[in-house]
Every structure is written in structure tokens, then in C-alpha cells.
Design a protein around this nucleic acid. Sequence first.
DNA 1: TCTTTTAGGAAATGATCGTTTCCAAATCAA
DNA 2: TTGATTTGGAAACGATCATTTCCTAAAAGA
Lengths: 204, 204
Amino acid sequence: MTDTIDIAPKLRGRPREFDMDAALDEALRVFSERGYHAASISELTEAMGLTAGSVYKAFGDKRGIFLAAFDRYRQVRQPLIEACLAEAANGRAKLFALTAFFAESSCGEIGRRGCLVVGSATELALFDEEIAGRVATAFNLDERRILDLIRLGQADGSISQHVDAEGIACAILCLTKGMRVIGKTDPKPERMLAVAEAAMKLLN
Amino acid sequence: MTDTIDIAPKLRGRPREFDMDAALDEALRVFSERGYHAASISELTEAMGLTAGSVYKAFGDKRGIFLAAFDRYRQVRQPLIEACLAEAANGRAKLFALTAFFAESSCGEIGRRGCLVVGSATELALFDEEIAGRVATAFNLDERRILDLIRLGQADGSISQHVDAEGIACAILCLTKGMRVIGKTDPKPERMLAVAEAAMKLLN
DNA sequence: TCTTTTAGGAAATGATCGTTTCCAAATCAA
DNA sequence: TTGATTTGGAAACGATCATTTCCTAAAAGA
């Protein structure tokens, strides 16, 4: 889906001079901090190190920048989560690693910057069907990953067979997204870590 | 805090003709649906049934409308929650009533409209200290109410004495606010109710 | 009654927004 | 080389935004 922008070997014409990923990293930072509507083209272009003309050539319009930044955000964040999960031994430990990762993401500067998917859900989903679809897809994949980890835990013996896996998966999804909301108010890290620890009781 | 607007017996001059609460109910609906920056003065005034001049007389500026609507939102919502809790017999049952209330609030039209406090947290808290303070106050009061219910449950025997009450309270806070985020994607009511039921395991 | 004060409302204001235009620069195909 | 194609970038564009102005209407105080 992001390939159309990232790869797309434009053979003819003057080659693009700027680094697409670096530009999108700046754009997603501005969108995360300001939100979509409060992020002006001038602030975006300045952060991206481009002029308005170049940006409109590359992305079409402001919404195009946003959609590309949205995809980039997930593309950057996914590997961080996967790396975090890889270090844990079993299903239960991976789920703690996941909630602890969100606890850390909900504190400090990153926490106050907020989650671009959560921000899109609250600010844009109601009146933009395409963005609503991408948000729903992101949440569904998040939930599915949690569900898979619960099933993994049930298979490796770290989680009971008799729990409502689907209900718990959706509960952990809500919990982690809610952490990102509370993270906007600069909570103390130990409070968020306590949430991650408490969340483990959902698996009993 | 809202008294300055709601009460304030302006003795002299032409009396206000419009119903402040009704106008604010419309304003908070527009702000909830559109978000702060996408809500234009013209859409707000039309929804409130007023002209721009009257609105600026009454609220000073757009931000003033928002702050009044924010307070009104909480003023309206609080009694609904209290009424919900009053029907439950003990601490544990009240906590289920609370999460079930949020489950219901996260579905259908109201769910897709979203929570004005959550929306303010994600869209405005980073660059508006006063709004960030009101959001933090709202979340702190929510968390405190949950904590009090846990303590009530511990007193009436429906919740174990040996749980981390503070950690669980913050976890339930995150869970309920997260439900409001997921609620923007039109989830099935039974899924959200399963979350409320799963949340009860946090109390064991 | 007359003045003061505040609200209602239409119209105008300046600023900023997202976007387009136009042209030079850089690459590929022929 | 020449022509086609695409990018970079400054400047200009119309639209919309939040806000103000100015006037009339309605109430209280003197």
C-alpha cells in the first residue's frame, strides 16, 4: 500500500532530490503534535525541508501528505513492537512486553506527542471514510496480534485455556490505546508501568 | 467554575434571550463531531441558533465557546454516571456498571461522536496549558472515582484487600478512555460489553 | 423620563489557509 | 543534441477563517 510512494521507480524526468522517509518522519511528527487541521502547510513544508510546490507535486494535497505520513508511522512503529515481543519467552511474557512497550510510549516527550492512529480516530474518522478505514484496519491488526499472543500463551501453557480470548484481546486493545490518551497528560512512568502489570490479571 | 457563565446574575442591560445550556449542548456536539479546529464559527453559530455577534458577546472567542462547552459536557455526563452507579449493590457491581456504561457510550451514534475530553486530550492538550489542565483534572477525578469504588469494594467484601488498588484504578481509567477511542470505529456492542466483562478480572 | 448597560444581528475586516501557476533545472528517450 | 517529462521553488490565487464594527433593541438605575 505504501509501495506506490516509497518504491515507484519514476524512470523519466528530473529525479526527486529529497529523502521521502525523512520528510515523512517530520510530517508525521507535526501531524502527531498539532493534529491534522492545526498542522498548516507552511509548518509542514518547513519541517520537511521542502517548498509547497514540491510537496504538492509529491503528495497531491494536504490529505495526501497525511495519508503517506499515517502509513509511514505504522511502518516505523511495527518493527519496534516486533523487536520488543521477540525478546519475551512465551505468550504471557510477550503480552507483558507489549503492554510495557505501550506504557513507555505513553510517557515523556513521545507520550505527549501522542499516537497518530489514535489522533486520527478522534479527529478524522467520523467524516473521512478512507481514514476511518485505515484506522479500523490498524486497530484490527493490533487486536489480532494480541489475540494471536493469547493463543500462543494458551499453546505454550502460560495462559489458561478457559479464558475468553477475544474479549481479553479487545480489552487489551482498549487498554493500550487508552494509555496513549492518558499519555497526553504527562503521567508518571511508574503509574503507566503499574497499568501494564495490572493488565496481566486479564489473562488469569 | 462554570458558575461564572451559568449563574452570574447580570442585573443591568438587555437580558439574554437564548438558553445557555441548550446552546452549549449544540456547541459540544459540533466540537465532539468535528474536533476543535475543524469546527467553524459559522457551523457553531448555526447549530447554536445564534449569530456570530451574540456568540462573541457571550463567550469572547472561539476558545471561550469551547471551554464553556467542555465544562457543560462534563456537567451533563457526570449525573448519568452517578445514576448508573447508584443502581449497583456493592463496589464490584458499581465498577461493572461503570465499565458497562462506557461500553454503551462507545457504540452507535454516541460512540462515533466520541468523548470531548478524550478529543481535547489528543487534539489540544499539547499546546494549550489551560485545556491540558482541565483534561488532567477530568482524568484525575475519573481515576479517583474508580479508586474510591475499589476501596468501597474492599470495604464491603466484594473485592480482595490484597490488590494494587491504585494500579487497577489507572488501568480501568485507561481501559474506559480506550473504549471511547475504539468507539470511533463503530464497534459491535457485544464486543464492547465483552471488554467490560473482561475488565472485572482486574479486580481479582 | 433619560441615561447606562447589555444583547441581537448584519456586514465588513484582515489574516491565514490550502492550492495553483509559472518557470528554471535536471534527467531520460530518441 | 533535441524533446519529453518530472522536480524545485517563488509568487500569486481565491476561499474561508476568526474576529470586529456598528447599529438597533431591551432592560435597569436614577
